[in-house]
Amino acid sequence: MYHKEKSIQIKSSASALYNNLSVLRIAPRSLTYFTVVHANVVNMVSASWDGLNFSHRQLQSKEGNIAASSSLIMQASWCVLPARELLVLTSQKGIQMYESDGSIMVYWHALDIPETPTAQAVFARGIAAVRENYICVGVSSGSVLVFDVPSKGSNIMLSEVLEEHRDSITDMASECSGSLECIADLVTADDSGVLCVWKSGEDFQLLNKIPGFDVCCSSVKLWKGTVAAGYGTGQIRLYEAVTGIVHAEVNAHARWIYSLDIAPFSGLLLSGAEDSLVRVWHMTLTPETNSVEIEHLYSECVTDTQICGAKFCDGDGYAFAVTGYDLSEIIRYTQA
């Protein structure tokens, strides 16, 4: 169903971090941007759709005024708001927001770092753009920081801190269908597998807390009111966001899942894990019976590669891209 395309070389190899690939499609310029984290550096590549031009940029984790540092980056992700696109980096020291091309840092939020290192690591991880003007970022303490982002300029404000999780945030996702009928806007996940479902607004409202079963939920997505969650046991679960009803349970991978993605127009679900496999699934919603089904469509083994990032390159799921630990390339697959 998919075939392998020419890979994109990156300047340094991917680190083993959850959701270590972000893709931004810039239709007017026929470009796709990719980011992959390598230790304290973010590799950025812009690729033209004809496959002829690639340009590279590397971003260091800058902490406010300190020019360089060894602080490790946990995640890099593009956040698409109606008025602007930002590239958000989370690290051991704080949160950086850049213009989407990585040229200008527009905002820096420092985390509270204790003088002497504590047993509990400090970092930010989990990034999502929500509705018109919010960017949410997770923290190792379990807090979710809500930033209010103006349509332009650098006057970004920390507007709220959501304290529902008791373990480190792993990932979060906003509703990706674009449908305004969905009540839930955001789902956040943590190390113990707890999922919180939120409605955005001036005050974020907790709609539901889906209990975990002490298995880390490493990647989460929200599509048409359905939560897709990937776990350390290799399982994928589909929940109804507002009620927490389990629609489906899939024994999907033999090792820890690192990344999930959804193509919102087609309902395709992509999963990538440490077992070196990427799989494509198809989700079907039947509103009349309030049921969700899922079937397996396609699997690809990226030989001897623990997959750490897997993302669709377009809303239909026509193409997807994959990265893996120690790999200095982004592998692309396109539908035949």
Binding site: T233, N251, A254, D275, S276, L277, I294, E295
Partner: peptide
């Protein structure tokens, strides 16, 4: 990286999808 042999403790062998009613 092997794609065979025993799965980790706590993991189910991949291959099964279960669908639930409300």
């Amino acid at each position: 990286l092997p794609t065979s042999g025993p799965v980790p403790y706590g993991t189910q062998v991949p291959g099964l999808i279960r669908i639930f009613s409300c």
